[in-house]
Simulated assay, not measured.
Amino acid sequence: MSAPSPDQSSVNAPAPNAPAPGQPGPNAPRSVRDHRIDALRGVALLMMFVDHIPQSLLNRFTMRNVGFADAAEIFVLLAGYASWLAYGRGFRKYGVVECLKRIARRCVQLYIGQTIMVVVSVFSIRIWRHYTPVPVDFLEPELAHGLSWVWRVMMFDALPSNLNILPLYIILLGGFPLFYGLMRIHRSLALLLSGAVWMLVNLDPDVNLPNWLDPDGWYFNPFAWQFLFALGATASAETERRGADFPRVRLMVVCCVLYLLFSAFQAFPWTLWGLPDLRPFGSMIMPEKSWLSPLRLLDVMAIFYLVQSSAKARTWAAESRMGRLLARVGRHSLEIFVVGTLLDLYARLLFSTFGDGWLLQIVVNLAGLGILFSLADWLDGYRKRQRAAQAA
Rank of each mutant, 00 (worst) to 15 (best):
S5R: 12
P6H: 05
N12D: 03
A15C: 10
A15E: 10
P21H: 02
R30P: 05
D34C: 03
R41W: 06
V50F: 10
L57K: 14
R64G: 01
D70F: 09
A71I: 15
F75Q: 15
L78E: 07
A79Q: 08
A79R: 00
S83E: 11
W84T: 13
V97K: 14
C99K: 05
R102A: 09
C107K: 14
Q109N: 08
G113F: 08
I116Q: 12
V120M: 07
P133C: 04
V134D: 12
P135G: 06
D137I: 00
G146W: 09
W149G: 06
M155N: 12
M155D: 04
L159S: 03
L166T: 09
L166E: 05
F176A: 05
R187D: 02
M199H: 10
P210V: 02
N221W: 00
P222T: 03
W225A: 01
G232H: 10
A237H: 14
R248N: 07
A264F: 02
A264V: 08
P269Q: 07
G274C: 10
G274T: 14
L275N: 06
S283Q: 15
M286Y: 05
E288S: 11
P294K: 02
L295F: 05
L297H: 07
M301I: 02
V307T: 15
V307D: 00
S309I: 09
A313V: 11
E319V: 12
M322H: 05
G323M: 15
R324K: 13
E335A: 15
R348F: 01
L350R: 13
W378D: 06
W378S: 01
R385A: 07
A389M: 12
